[in-house]
């Protein structure tokens, strides 16, 4: 078989015992996410668990439940709200709790990862966005990476929006993402993720858009011929804690969870950068034709998308986000 990178091997579900040194942890918690192996949500979850155990000398054990084992994104957030799950890592689904998190669907918001890092330290994230969460029983801890989104398809290499003409592209359930690809000239429609592999294989859809690690993590490269580097959206994911559980923690424990969240955020951006660098070769080795898209030609079409966003989210807030991301 093939040599797919498996960054999770060092952190399989049972590997924590080695760090623990045989003693019983004084605190064991559940961390739920929808990501599977290869996906940044999944890898960040295991990295966070590993670092927490190291930093607490094995006194805190984080059991990761990846791949939606404990439920879909909304369900695990609702479970965290009631304290049944201690921590979750979710991405776009958070917009259903607080629509303001939809701002990251602004195309080409972050020029590169140093801007992302800078944003994660900005007032907009630290105060404005985080303060929306307690209303939903959640505490915002980490601003992690899901990744820069790219377009893969089976028709032709995508250089400019003109190349997307007539292409059926699968997008997630997101009004903005649909509006964006309509502006780009494609024919976007949502499809449940479970159907995506066969839909691409049988040609129901020609194209999809997601970060490179997620494409490989879902084996979509096996059913796609072209990968075009567009970086059209940078999707973050968020490490969230249950508010009721968080309030029971000692300040020392809270400090560990917060510090490691920041370290893991940095780690996830480095890992994401590294994956983007390395996976291009992986795609080529697996027969996928990779090209760099003409990004300015896409950027020229985004103004209406930002306008649509401002109809649903406070325009001043959107402007503050754009400013903080510069």
């Amino acid at each position: 078989s093939e040599n797919r990178s498996q960054p999770t091997e060092g952190a399989s579900p049972s590997s924590g015992d080695a760090v623990n040194g045989g003693g019983e942890p004084e605190l064991t918690i559940r961390l739920a996410t929808n990501g599977g192996p290869g996906n940044m949500l999944h890898d960040s979850a295991y990295e966070y668990a590993k670092r927490i155990e190291e930093k607490s000398n094995g006194k805190i054990k984080v059991n990761v439940f990846a791949n939606s084992q404990l439920g879909t994104d909304l369900a695990v957030m609702d479970a965290a709200n009631s304290g049944s799950i201690e921590m979750v890592i979710v991405s776009t689904a958070l917009t259903q709790k607080a629509p303001e998190f939809g701002v990251f669907d602004i195309p080409f918001l972050f020029a590169d990862r140093t801007k992302v890092k800078q944003f994660s330290e900005s007032d907009v994230w630290q105060n404005e966005l985080k303060s929306l969460l307690p209303e939903h029983g959640l505490v915002g801890l980490g601003f992690f990476e899901n990744g820069y989104r790219q377009i893969s398809n089976n028709v032709r290499p995508i250089h400019t929006p003109e190349d997307l003409e007539g292409i059926n592209i699968r997008v997630p359930d997101s009004r903005i993402r649909i509006a964006m690809f309509e502006e780009f000239g494609a024919n976007p429609s949502p499809l449940d993720f479970s159907e995506l592999f066969t839909a691409l294989q049988q040609g129901v859809y020609d194209a999809q858009e997601s970060p490179m690690p997620a494409i490989v993590g879902s084996a979509l490269h096996e059913v796609q011929q072209y990968l075009s580097i567009t970086n059209h959206v940078y999707s973050p994911c968020y490490l969230l804690a249950s508010q009721v559980w968080w309030d029971t923690l000692s300040p020392e424990h809270q400090q560990i969870f917060e510090e490691v969240a920041i370290e893991t955020g940095d780690w996830s951006r480095d890992a994401g950068q590294q994956a983007d660098d390395e996976l291009v070769d992986f795609f080529k080795e697996n027969g996928v034709e990779v090209n760099d898209a003409d990004i300015p030609s896409f950027q020229a079409r985004i103004a209406p998308v930002v306008d649509i966003m401002k109809e649903n989210i406070d325009p001043d807030f959107v402007d503050r986000v754009i400013e903080a991301a510069k």
Partner: peptide
């Protein structure tokens, strides 16, 4: 160890499946 609030959340999620 688990609050009973979880019951409706998981029950509903169990029926929420596109395929």
């Amino acid at each position: 160890s688990v609050p009973l609030d979880i019951l409706p959340v998981v029950l509903l999620d169990g029926a929420n499946s596109f395929p």
